Simulated scan of single mutants.
Amino acid sequence: MMAWVRTAIFSLLFWAISIPLVLLAPVAALFGPSVLRRYVLRWIALHRGLARTVLGIRLRLEGEIPDGPVIFAAKHESLYEAIELTGMLDSPATVMKRELASIPLWGWTARRYGVIVVDREANAAALRRMMKDARAALDGGRSVLIFPEGTRVAPGEAPPLRAGMAGLYRMLNLPVVPVAVRAGHVWPKRGAKRPGEITFRFGAPLPPGLPRAEIEARVHAGINMLHPPVVHETPEKR
Rank of each mutant, 00 (worst) to 15 (best):
E149I: 06
V219R: 06
D67K: 12
L30F: 08
A137P: 04
R52G: 04
A25Y: 03
L12Q: 01
A29M: 06
P235D: 12
D119T: 03
G56L: 06
P66V: 04
W106V: 15
G209F: 12
H232F: 13
G141I: 01
P104T: 05
G184Y: 06
V54N: 06
R111Q: 13
E84Y: 01
S102M: 11
F31E: 05
I65K: 12
A28Y: 01
L172D: 05
A221G: 10
R37W: 05
L85F: 03
V231N: 05
V5W: 11
I65T: 12
L13F: 12
P104I: 07
K193H: 11
A158T: 13
L41I: 09
V153H: 12
H232M: 12
T234G: 09
M88H: 05
E99Q: 14
F10L: 09
R42G: 10
P228S: 13
L210Q: 15
G63R: 08
R52F: 11
E233A: 14
A213S: 14
A137M: 06
M2I: 14
I44L: 00
K193V: 04
G107P: 07
R182W: 04
P228R: 14
I71Q: 11
P175V: 08
T7P: 07
A158H: 14
R129M: 09
R38K: 14
E77Y: 01
P188Q: 08
W106G: 00
G196Y: 06
L13V: 10
E157Q: 15
W4P: 00
E121L: 11
P92D: 02
E233S: 13
L226Y: 09
G156W: 03
L172I: 02
G49V: 10
I103P: 03
R42W: 10
M165K: 03
E99T: 14
I17D: 02
A28E: 04
W106R: 00
L206K: 09
D133Y: 05
P92V: 01
R98H: 12
W43T: 07
V144N: 09
F14W: 14
G32K: 06
V5R: 01
M225P: 00
